[in-house]
Write a protein that binds this DNA or RNA. Structure first.
Lengths: 119, 119
DNA sequence: AAATCATTTCGTATTTTTGCGAAATATAAA
DNA sequence: TTTATATTTCGCAAAAATACGAAATGATTT
């Protein structure tokens, strides 16, 4: 008997990564750190986005817990940067996921003419 | 005076996409539809994952609302498939986001030696 | 030691997500 | 028309995410 299946490690890992990126503030943070190609303090970020400092701090914490960024204490600042090793892993997983669909053939049920029974 | 900034369209769009993919069941659904290169009913999916039928239906609905999949009624089934146009858009956004970090130079604050003050 | 600065944590409230089983819907088969 | 099949929606409950301001932390300057 097919005992209850589990989610695969891949599915859980990918969901963990996409979940970490599932808020505009967290997209912004990663975007900023990638573009900078360096570090940034929360004080340098707060001016760019419409949330309170404490809320930004929460989002930073979530990204830290997801392993995508890391902080370095440099009094009186905390400089955040991409956790390079983990980010590369995340990129690999996401790219693997995205490349799955290629090449996209035409045996898809989405036919040429729009169907009326499409929901 | 810098009036309160908004999140950019890009940040919101990317967050919407990653949020749609932020649950293992939804990763599974997309994975399945991409690999199949075709359509699939919810009944063909339910055996693969540890959730109830009604819960799967919820996840399908979410992916549908995010625009990533679409359903086609073919009695007595409903066949789901990737919403190709929107998926391609999603891929573009994600790839743009991911490629931002390349090439990754060494002026990153993550120095060679592990720092003790890394948090 | 007191004041200052950058940032996080705490306490709390609100909203959203996730989940299930039961009931509803819609179609096909008997 | 009754029955069976496939799937969704409803009603509810529990858990998680989001948000803010106030207070706490830790280091530096005065």
């Amino acid at each position: 008997m097919a005992s209850k299946p589990k989610f695969t490690q891949y599915q859980s890992d990918l969901a963990r990564i996409t979940k970490a990126l599932s808020h505009p503030a967290r997209v912004y943070i990663i975007e900023k750190l990638l573009m900078l190609k360096g570090c940034c303090t929360s004080g340098e970020m707060i001016g760019d986005i419409p949330i309170a400092r404490s809320t930004l701090s929460r989002h930073l914490k979530e990204l830290k817990m997801a392993g995508l960024i890391q902080g370095e204490i440099e009094p009186p600042h905390i400089k955040y940067c991409i956790n390079k090793a983990n980010w590369i892993e995340a990129e690999k997983l996401l790219n693997k996921f995205l490349s799955q669909g290629h090449s996209y053939p035409e045996q898809n049920c989405q036919t040429e003419k729009p169907k009326k029974n499409t929901i």
